[in-house]
Structures are given as structure tokens and as C-alpha cells.
Computed example of a mutant assay.
Amino acid sequence: MGQPQEPHHRLPFGNPFKKTSSKGSQLSQRPLFLLNAFEFALTARLRKLNPKDKHDVLSLAWMVLAMESLCETHTDIKTLITELDLPVTGWDEKWIDVYMDISVKLLDICNALSSELLRLNQGHLLLQCALHNLESNTSEKLVRACSSLDSWRQNIGAKNPRLENCKSILEGLVDSVSLPKVKNSAKGKVLMQAMYGAKIQTVFVCSVAAAVFSGNSNNLLDLDVAKTTTWAQAFSDLQTNVNGGIRDIFSLGKFPVLKELDEVYTAVKNLCPMIQDGKRPIEVEAFSNSFSDLGRRAEKLAQGLDFLTKVVDGFFKIVLSGRDALLCDLRAPDTLADPFPGSNGKRFVR
């Protein structure tokens, strides 16, 4: 799955929320309080994602944490909009167009990740079949087990075209990060700065997920964010550690790179020579230990895939219901714009 390395470049982003010196440009106390609360929470999430070891990010556990963090940030955006009491009639047409374009790309990425998780889950069925056959000591069952394990190795080594296309989708997201400047609207400025932070976190997490599951570090993006945001340093530290660690590991040509997947791969590699050509294992104790080890690691992988699938599905629903809510609000002026609803899909009305 490893790919040749290509030079990577930092992608510059200007801060879409720049204070001006003209009269009336300063934020009122309430919107500023809401913005500070949002950015404080975002900073804490970014720091929580910073791995203690570079190998941690190449795990399903970190992926689950990262996707859960995204869901929390997008839910906070929903809460912020509710607190700002910013009606859809106050939205600039460009803001709506930008959000709609971004949401389509996020749905595409969710679909790509879901397709890969489904593929890996289908591979787990092959492991279950092999483990079932290994419970018997007959030559016929051992041959079937070998066949299932060989099929599983081919499954995880196959390319997923939908993941290969993530790079172009991510680059499209990058183009959407810089938002139009907001004039004469304190609430609008707060919303745009908060959405700026949410988009940076989203692009980063999605690029890491695409890189890890495709086995291609070219899917990683390096984002150069505005230093004036309170969360800039936390994001810079996170990005440096995560992207740098991933590139270091990928440069070794290791396969597979996902931690839980690699553990199963190693267990399969240790077990296969013992049952080659359907021969009964000579070292019974060694075979029993390898069999048990494969069962434990396969179960751990299955649980991780299940957890991540549910979180990705939840994030998909957040984005999808957000689009639906905003479209409904555009048709009904007396409702409150809700572009990032929570996973329960509920909308708030005035």
C-alpha cells in the first residue's frame, strides 16, 4: 500500500476574520464571549488529539478519537449559531454557497472512508471463516483455513479507488477554507472565524484518515493557518507531530501501516507456515498459541472497525442533516439557520 514519496508543500491560509480599525468594527461583548468559548474548546480538542507516540495516530483508536472530536466541533458550531440568533436572511449568499460546496465534499470523503471500512469488515469474515476451520484438526479444514487467510491478505492489499480520489476532494476543500470577508456584522465575523477553525480541523483529520487508510502519505495536507487565532499553536504542534510521524513511518515501507491491521497480519504470517498444504501442525502448543493470538487480534480489529464505522456514520448524518436544515430555512424565513446540527438531526426554530 505504500507509495513513493513526493515533495509536500504547505498550503497558506489567510485569516478570514481580520479586525479593522474603522468605527463599529469591534465585536460586541456577547458575540466575543461566544467566540472565545468556541475557540477555547477547539484548542482543548486539538491538544487532546496530539499523540504521545507517533505510532498512536496509525491506530483505529486515534481515528475514533479524531472523528468524535470533529463531531463535537461541528455540534459546537450549531450551538454557536443558535446562541448568535443569526437568521438565514442575515447570511451572505456567498457563505451559503461555500457551505453547500464544503458539505458535498465532506459527504464524498465520508463515503470513501465508509467504503474502505466496509471492505475491511468484509475481510474480517474471511478471518472468522479461517478461525472456524482451524478449530478442526483435519487436513481438509486446514486447507480451507489457508485459503481464507490467503484471501484475507489479498483483500487488505487491494486498492480502493474511492480512497485514491480523496486527494482531489481534499484539495477542493482547501480552496473553500478562505471565506469572504464580513463587513458590518459582528455576529457574521464571529460565525466566520468559528467556521474557519472547524474547517481547518476537518480538512486536517480527513487528510490524515485518507493517508492512513490508503497507505499513501501524498494524501496528507500541510495547512499554514493564521497565527492570530488562539488555537493556532495547538494546531501547529498537532500537525507537525502527526504528519511528521506518519511520513517517517511510511518512509520505512511498512505494510500494513494501520496498527490493529498490522497485528492481525503478523499473527496470520506466523500461523500460515504451521498449516501449509493442510499438514497437521507438529508443534501443537505453538499452533494453539498462534491460533489464540490470531483470534484475540482479529476481535480487536473488528471492534475498532465497528466503533469507527459508527462515528463516521454519525459525522455523515451531521453534515447531511445540516444541508437539509439550511435548505429548509432558505424556504422558510422565520426559522433559524442551522448549518451544523447535532447527530440527532434536530433543528432549532425561533
Rank of each mutant, 00 (worst) to 15 (best):
A198Y: 06
F204N: 05
G345M: 09
F255Y: 07
L163P: 01
F17H: 12
P341M: 05
L27D: 14
L34E: 08
L60R: 08
V143E: 05
P161F: 12
V284I: 14
T335Y: 11
L191D: 03
I102L: 07
A232F: 13
Q201V: 09
A209V: 14
E72Y: 08
T228E: 13
G304T: 03
K300S: 15
N344Q: 04
D248L: 07
E68A: 01
L60D: 09
G197H: 11
T335L: 15
K54P: 00
S292D: 12
F33P: 00
K159N: 15
C129N: 13
G188N: 05
L308N: 06
T228R: 07
G188E: 03
I109G: 01
M274N: 01
N133C: 07
R153Y: 10
R297N: 04
K189Q: 15
S28G: 15
L336F: 06
D76W: 06
D237M: 05
P161I: 11
L320Y: 15
H9A: 01
Q5M: 10
K310G: 08
D101V: 10
K159F: 14
E6C: 03
L58T: 02
S178H: 04
A211Q: 02
S343G: 03
A44V: 14
Q276S: 09
D224Y: 06
D306C: 15
T240P: 00
T138F: 07
V212Y: 00
Q276V: 08
V349W: 08
V212S: 03
Q128C: 13
R296L: 14
T228W: 00
S178E: 11
G157W: 07
M67C: 15
G295P: 08
L327F: 09
G14P: 03
L131A: 10
R347C: 06
V225C: 05
P180W: 07
I77H: 01
C146H: 12
T309Y: 14
E83I: 04
A44C: 02
M63T: 13
Q233M: 07
P256H: 02
F287L: 06
N111C: 04
I275G: 05
M1E: 08
I77G: 02
K48L: 12
H124T: 14
G123L: 09
E263N: 13
P51L: 02
L70H: 08
P341S: 05
C166E: 08
T309V: 11
M195A: 02
L65C: 05
K279A: 12
N289W: 08
A194S: 09
P31Y: 13
V57F: 04
C71D: 04
V190C: 00
H74G: 07
L11Y: 10
V264A: 03
P256V: 04
L173M: 15
L42C: 12
L191Q: 07
Q128Y: 06
K48Q: 14
L252S: 13
I246P: 01
T229E: 10
V177W: 00
R144P: 00
R10V: 12
R323G: 09
D222S: 13
L142K: 13
I249S: 04
S21I: 08
T43Q: 14
